[in-house]
Amino acid sequence: MASFRTIPLLAILLLAPGLYAQAKKPNTIHPPRARLNAIDKLSRMPPEQRQRELAKLSPERRAVMEDRLERYNRLPAAQKERLRAQTETFQSMPPERQDAVRKAFRQFNTLPDDRRKPVQQELRRLRQMKGTERSARMNSEDFRNRYSPGERQILENLAALVPPD
């Protein structure tokens, strides 16, 4: 009988973490694969239903999302699959590392047009390099002369964190 009486206590102990997590974090963070599947699900919805779902967003965000969704759906199957694999790998990284990459990418997009191309080319070169080779390049005189401190920071974050193709 004494063991039966401990059941309510055990129930509280078992449910407490779940209830605490629900209260603290109302939005469920889905794993990368689930997010990718959700994109497919949204793409396959009948237009009326998709419109109803997207109506929950502001007009600006909705327009951007519709545009990206359409471009994603137009991609060839092989490219789409590669993109999905990259995204899944990236989203499996620790959240703070993901945020650092996203922040660097946003900074990259704010670069002047005449700087974006050389930075992008440098980034592609860096991503092809191995760790020691990349470090040597980033510490070189030529690298420091070509790029500003802000650009070097962007390159460092993106080259180190974005998984290779």
């Binding site: 109302p26 939005n27 959700a38 699900k41 949204l42 929950k56 967003l57 999302m65 990206r68 989203q91």
Partner: peptide
């Protein structure tokens, strides 16, 4: 088909943004 929450849409939005990043940075 199921109804999506706004948080799900936010995560889809973020994933599409990540894909956009990879597309732009790809060789």
């Amino acid at each position: 088909q199921i109804k999506m929450e706004s948080s799900d849409l936010e995560q889809i939005e973020m994933t599409l943004e990540d894909m956009e990043m990879f597309k732009q940075l790809a060789p």
